[in-house]
Structures are given as C-alpha cells and as structure tokens.
Design a protein around this nucleic acid. Structure first.
Lengths: 342, 342
DNA sequence: CTGTTAGCGCCTTCAC
DNA sequence: GTGAAGGCGCTAACAG
C-alpha cells in the first residue's frame, strides 16, 4: 500500500540520459528522433514502469480522450443498452467514458456538466426532463455536445432522437386492430418522452381511447397499473405501456389476477429491452434499436470533437418499429404461424 | 459551435480585481477571506460563467475525485447492477465514475489500468479471467485498488467476493432434493467464477451429477444447452446454469421443446438479476446482492483513498443465498402456498 | 487577510 | 536531431 512518489517523464529522461523534451518525443512516437534514442528512452521507461500522468497530459494538450455521458439513471436494461452502445463506439476510438447519472432535473444536469469541464472532450447528454430547455441556455458553448432524446428548441447541438410519437401511434394502432378498448400506462410527468408516447396513443385512438393510468417507468408502477386494470369494468382488452419495464410489471399483475394474455388482454410496451423477447408470453413492443442509436450519437460526438464542423444534419430521427410478439398476437401460434398465405 | 478560449481563474481574478490566489481561495470556500471579497469573486465568476478546469485542478491537487471501474463488459443486467451499486456509492461521495470494459484478458486489464493513471484516485477492478494473477504482478502499487470477484494470490488489495462455490453447492443440493439427475451449464473456460460454480455443483452431487454442458454466460449458449438437454436420454430432470442469463436462454429452449418447467425439468440460475423474478415461471437462483456488494466495494475504495490504512479486513466474502422460485418449486402454488403448517 | 512565487507533469515552440 | 525554457490552469506554501 506504500504510495511512493510516482515516476515522471523526468525520471525516464534522466535514466536514459536525455532531455525531457526528447523523452517526450520518443514516448509519443513523434518524428525527429534517432531510432537509437527512441529505443533508449523506451527501455528506460519500461525499466522504471513509467506510466504517463493523464492529468498532466490533459492540461498541456487540452485533450482528455474522454467523453462524458450523462443519463437520468444508470439502472436497468434500457440505460444499460445506451451505455453499451456508447462504450462500443468509445472503445473503437480508444476513448474513455465518464459516466454520470443526473437523476432528473435540468439543474442537476447543468451541475454535472459543469463538473465535467476539463475532464472530457465532449458530452453525450440525455435529459428527457421537460425543462431541458433551461439546460440549453445554461450550457457552456465551449464543449462539444450531442443530445439524445432530449428536446431543446435552440438546436445548436446535434440531436439523435427516437420518434416517440410515431412509435406509440403505431403500437396503439396495432392493438386497436384486435381490441375494443386500449388503455395506456403513462410514464412520469414532466418527461418529454412519456408525453410524446401518450400523445401518440391518444391520437391513434381518438375518442375510443381507453383509460389512462399514471405510471413512472418503473416496474412497480406497471404492476400497480396492472392491478387497477384487472379491477376495471368495463375492462380494457388491451394496454399500451409507455415502456417495457412497466409492461413487464403489468404482465405480472395480470398473471396474478388470472387474466390471460393476449386472449383477455393484449399488452404492448416500448423500447424493446432484451428481456421483452424473453417474457412468457413474449412482449410486443416498439423497437428503436437504442444501443445502435447511442453508438451513432457517440460517433457523431467524436467527429464533432475532431472537427468542430458545419451545422448540418443537426437532427437525426429514428422511426421506431412495432415488433409483434406473443403478448398481442391475434392467433397465438395456431398451427404453423409461418405460413402467412391468406 | 465557436470554441472560444475558455475563461480561467485569472480572468475571474482580474474581473474581481484581486489576485489569483485570493480568487482560488474564495472559489474553494477556504477560510481566511473577507466576506466582501468572496462575494466579489463569486459574482465575477458568475458573470463570466466561470467553470474550473478539472484537469488543472487534478494536476495541482493530485486528486481527481474520480474512481475507475473496470469490468469485463458493460452489457447486460449483471454488470448493470454492479454499475448501479458503484454509482450509488460514488454519488454519495460526490465522485465521478470512469468506466471501462476490458473484454477479458489480464493484459487488456493491465492496459486499461495504465491508461487510468492520473485520471482516477482509485480503481475498482473485476477481472474473473483466470490469469488475473498476472494482473496482480503487473499492477502499479501506487494506485489504491479494490478487487471484486477477482482471484489473486498476493492479497495486497482488499477484495470483495461472492462465495461462488458455496452458492453453487447450495443450489445443486436444492435441485437434487427434487430431481434424480441434475445437469450443469457451465460458464466460459478460464473464468474463475464459472469454475467455482462448476466445482460447487459437482461436489454437491458427487457421482450422481448429471451431464456437463459448456456455455459462456450468454443467453444464446444457454439456449443451445437447453436444446441439447431436451434431446438427451435419459434426460436430466433438473439443470443448474452457472448464471441467470444462460438459465433464461435455457428456459426458452425448454419451452420451445415443450418440456414443462418445473414438472419435467427444474431449473436454477445464479446472480438473481432483476429479470429472474419476472420470468414465467420465475427463476430459482442464487442471490449475492451484487449491487450491494459493488456499492460496499466502492465505499471501501473511498476509505482506502482517504486513508491508505491498515491491511486488515482484506477479504470480504458474501455467502449467497438460494432463492427458490417457480422454476424449481416442488408443488407450484398448489392451493394457498402460504400455509406452511405441516 | 492578501498577494507573490513556485511548482504539479507534460508538451511544444524555439534556439542550437 | 537535440536541449532549454515557457506555459497549460490551478493550488499551496510563503511573505507581507
């Protein structure tokens, strides 16, 4: 546990009997160095187990080789997917990822962003909280930034977003094809994604929209909503949850209440988290390939950092796709469901 | 996108008409500063939208306020849980988290660790790869470090681990109570956790252990194993998967093959990832409360950084617990299963 | 209480 | 090709 003074480039230079400048050049593979000297420096470094101090390098190069990722939370499959996508891209570029959860609230995000100055080259920010607008204003412009599913008017930063409205609209329509009354379990208030999805559901169904249950994206809230649903009369025969996590909770409640899915009640979620496919019945959902989205967002950020370029392609919208699975299949694997010839 | 020269403490000092030192003191809430001056500096900082440059601060304070977390992968519920625990602790201490996946291999880990010098105050490392030993040797001692489920002989670093052997042993025993032949789906080769779990299974059953199927902790490998299992004759009537993810895949394969769980085959996994509870049937598993473990490991790391203290409590082992659920219940919710009066 | 000075470890002109 | 010197932004002695 002894924490000795760590060895610096000076030590290496001394050991190799060259100047610090030359050592630096050799270490960084800069040209203008004799092969002999380079070898001497490198071997000295090896002998001393020299490891460059990133803090110092950051200060002098003004490069951190790190991207900050700010998410509302780090918990659960959804954010795990986002992290995975970002990580994939970061690795590909040899960059680090500085992670932070903001737990909602634009001021919290602003604070986190502040604390990241000087330790990241750029930011990937997801802040679905409705007052993200405040955010935009309080942002320093001196840090490249890419937004993810974050509604901001000013539009100075590239933004990758899922068309939540269209996805929800399609899902609701799908359910309406087989059901008379389609309920909705909404996400948290003041969340722009939740709002868009709710709006999509409502617009898709018009007057025939079923009851609206308030949730908060957690599984538990989905469970409670499922219990409410089970007690209703007339009972809706379909429900669209604003995310998969709530849909999963809802399924559990329905199973407990002895309500058959999809026969007595069809269920659909949103996000296509990995577990959706694995539920029994498997969960119909709306997929936006979120890991892919975050990967591309980080790629974009990397480009932005390298070349603070033109303002084009500021907004990229992904049109999600309904994935029909067991929880809403009209005729659940009757005979060979492959033969779609009529 | 203009990236102006960012404003430094010098600008603030100038604006407030004080020296840089005083500005620094005022900004950092150090005492020995007139209230008037502090106010002047703070307001200047606000006016200029000054944000301190962490890189510089790191260099001069030799403190990064960041912990590095090195995991084999960032993907899936298991690692998501670990991240969550670490994040919880980090937030509580106002620290950042620098995340990195190493994708196995001790040399990869060593490389990642190298690259983290000067940007973290300490490291939380999980490297179940069997040659973690190499790791231990190549480690610089000048960075506080806490290990997670990582087998290293030298024992110079605090280590938090799950007793994989005991957990697997107990799970296998549990299955053996209701089954004649208990198969095992193993994790990847050269993974110490997988090995321990396999050993626990074998020792629990002795000669009566069923077939051993090779997996790699992925859901797909569990699925394939499940298919194999379905074809076997004599067919095992229970299977213990080395992690939940594979168990989930296995369940899917069994369902597809029309094998009833738990009646025709009991299934158990390991880790108690969130989804385990949500499967139908819900998945019997071994829980080590992994999020809690990583949280505590990070707490320990924080203490270690603050006080490079004594070497005691170097190893903390969690004895995991079998959680019996539907996939292995002898009498699946017959009548009111609460009344355990006989 | 405040300002001056000297680094933190590294990179990068600029002379030689 | 190589070395000396200055500076990145900030903090931490030390004087005043």
């Amino acid at each position: 546990m002894r924490r000795a003074r760590s060895i610096t480039i000076r030590d290496v230079a001394h050991e190799a009997r060259v100047s610090v400048a030359s050592a630096s050049r050799a270490l960084n593979g800069a040209d203008g160095v004799t092969e002999a000297m380079r070898e001497r420096v490198l071997s000295a470094a090896r002998r001393l187990r020299y490891v460059p101090h990133s803090g110092a390098r950051i200060l002098s190069t003004r490069r951190t080789n790190t991207f900050g990722v700010i998410l509302p939370d780090l918990y659960g499959e959804f954010f795990s997917e986002i992290i995975r996508g970002a990580d994939t891209a970061a690795r590909a570029h040899g960059k680090h990822l500085l992670l932070s959860s903001s737990h909602d609230g634009a001021d919290a995000v602003a604070e986190v962003i502040r604390s990241m100055r000087g330790r990241v080259d750029g930011l990937l920010v997801m802040s679905p909280h409705i007052d993200a607008q405040l955010l935009a204003d309080s942002l320093a412009d001196d840090l490249p930034m890419v937004l993810l599913n974050t509604e901001v008017e000013g539009g100075r930063h590239p933004c990758f977003r899922v068309d939540n409205y269209a996805g929800a609209f399609a899902a609701a329509r799908h359910l309406a094809e087989r059901a008379r009354l389609v309920a909705h379990i909404a996400g948290p208030l003041n969340n722009s994604e939740a709002e868009e999805r709710c709006r999509g559901w409502r617009d898709a169904l018009g007057e025939t929209a079923g009851p609206l249950l308030q949730g908060d994206f957690t599984e538990e809230s989905g469970f409670l909503a499922g219990q409410d649903l089970a007690r209703m009369s007339p009972r809706p025969d379909a429900v669209f949850a604003a995310n998969d996590t709530m849909a999963v909770g809802c399924l559990a409640a329905l199973a407990e209440a002895g309500i058959a899915v999809p026969d007595a009640m069809a269920v659909a979620g949103f996000d296509d988290i990995p577990i959706a496919r694995l539920m029994r019945p498997s969960l119909t959902t709306v997929s936006a390939r979120i890991a892919d989205l975050s990967r591309r967002a980080l790629e974009r950020l990397a480009r932005l950092v390298d070349t603070p370029d033109t303002l084009n392609d500021l907004l990229e919208t992904v049109r999600p796709e309904v994935i029909v699975r067991g929880s809403s299949r009209v005729d659940p694997q009757s005979r060979h469901s492959n033969g779609e010839q009529g």
